[in-house]
Simulated scan of single mutants.
Amino acid sequence: MAANPTVSDLFKSKDVTDEEVDAAVDAVLADLATYAYPLAKGWTLDLVETIRTNERAAEALKTDKSAWKRNMVRTAILLAHPVKA
């Protein structure tokens, strides 16, 4: 695994489950105020920074298109680099 893995890398290696990614997406959609989201097995993800640095996800959150919003947030999370807690 890479020294600085993405959530996608952790998902592929089974260190993060689909349910854990879905829960992170739900957390963003419910209230984007989480800086240190406990992703899985000691990994944390700054959800605010994840969305702030992904222009498409930030743009999607301003719309009323729920499927697009969810997909863009999920993509941003999968591309993000969590930190080992």
Results as ranks from 00 to 15, higher is better:
S66P: 03
A80L: 05
D22N: 08
P38V: 04
T75E: 01
A23L: 12
V16F: 03
R56K: 14
L39W: 03
A36I: 09
F11I: 05
R52D: 15
D31W: 07
M1G: 02
N71C: 05
V25M: 02
L45V: 06
A60C: 00
P5E: 09
V48A: 12
A58H: 12
L39K: 02
T17H: 01
D46L: 14
W68E: 04
D15R: 10
V21Q: 00
H81D: 03
V16R: 02
A3S: 11
K84Y: 13
Y35P: 08
D26M: 10
S66K: 01
V48I: 11
R52N: 15
V83L: 13
N71P: 06
T63G: 01
P82S: 08
Y35C: 11
L47I: 08
P82T: 06
A58P: 05
D26S: 04
S66C: 01
A2V: 15
A3P: 09
K69D: 13
V25T: 03
T50Q: 11
A76G: 13
L45N: 03
P38K: 07
S66T: 10
L39G: 04
V73L: 01
E20S: 04
V25F: 01
V7P: 00
V28D: 02
A40S: 00
A36N: 08
D9M: 02
D18T: 09
P38W: 06
T50S: 13
A60D: 07
A57Y: 04
T75V: 05
T50K: 08
